[in-house]
Amino acid sequence: MRSIVLQHMIDNKDHYIEQWRVSFGELLFSRSESTIKPQYIQDEMKEEFVSVIFDTLTMDRHSRRAVVKRFAERLIHDGWVVSEFIMSLQRLRRIVMKDLSNHYDKEKFVDLSGELEDWLDEQITDLTTEFAKNHEEVKAIQNVALKELSAPLIPVFDKIVVMPLIGTIDTKRASQIMENLLDGIIEHRAQVVLIDITGVPLVDTMVAHHIIRASEAVRLVGAECLLVGIRPEIAQTIVNLGIDLGNFTTKSTLKKGVEAALQMTHRDIITNEEPVTGGGLN
């Protein structure tokens, strides 16, 4: 069962394609992401787009969707911008509408335009759905990667571990940090944990709150927390915001932190008078 509109479009296919192509010039591939592609690739894509859209006219709903899906996958893979294709489809709508209004009387036109809308909306929906789905997938993958990167724990000495934090800390990440921290302490039998915030761009009350909470939890499982890597501007913010880190041992650099941690575990770094032969430092 094919509607009159689609039949009409198939009959006048060549005419519409011609008109549509003319309006392509100004519309399709005006974004910089697309214009950096070689001209012949842009031309190929235009042709393919035209043929995909007009091929779907004769297909049923199911295979139509499959074709659009495959086309969308190609677009995503090659890095095209979806909005340009949507805009082109809207332009096609305008062309066909105008033509329909010339051919049919008003009442008929209202019916027909409804059908046209349905068909075009379907294409647009399929195209955007495919793009949205792809974005979701990419986002999920990135989230996993981010999670893996967000709170690493590095054992540096016996009983001493370091957690370098880089980037903004939000609530979700804070709980991730807390978990990794506590599990790592148990796993490495650590007594001192150094939290390095050199890479944290901003320490506000929220971040400070998370760090304080983490250090209290660390104390409960039986280790101690040192906060290192306090940059001058961070020290200023902390004091200006009135955050109380009084119960905290803080050091300006990781190096000083490690020295303090060694002291807390009753150890020291000594320089040998004579070169060590065989084996390294103890």
Binding site: M178, E179, L182, D183, I185, I186, R189, A190, Q191, R213, E216, A217, V218, R219, L220, V221, G222, A223
Partner: peptide, 28 residues
């Protein structure tokens, strides 16, 4: 000295606002 508090327990305690400030702790 309290020893062997599990991470999950520690997190619950902190969430409840109980930090056992005065209590000594150790890993095991």
């Amino acid at each position: 000295v309290l020893t062997g508090i599990q991470p999950a327990v520690a997190i619950t305690l902190i969430d409840m606002g109980v930090s056992l400030q005065e209590v000594q702790t150790a890993l095991d």
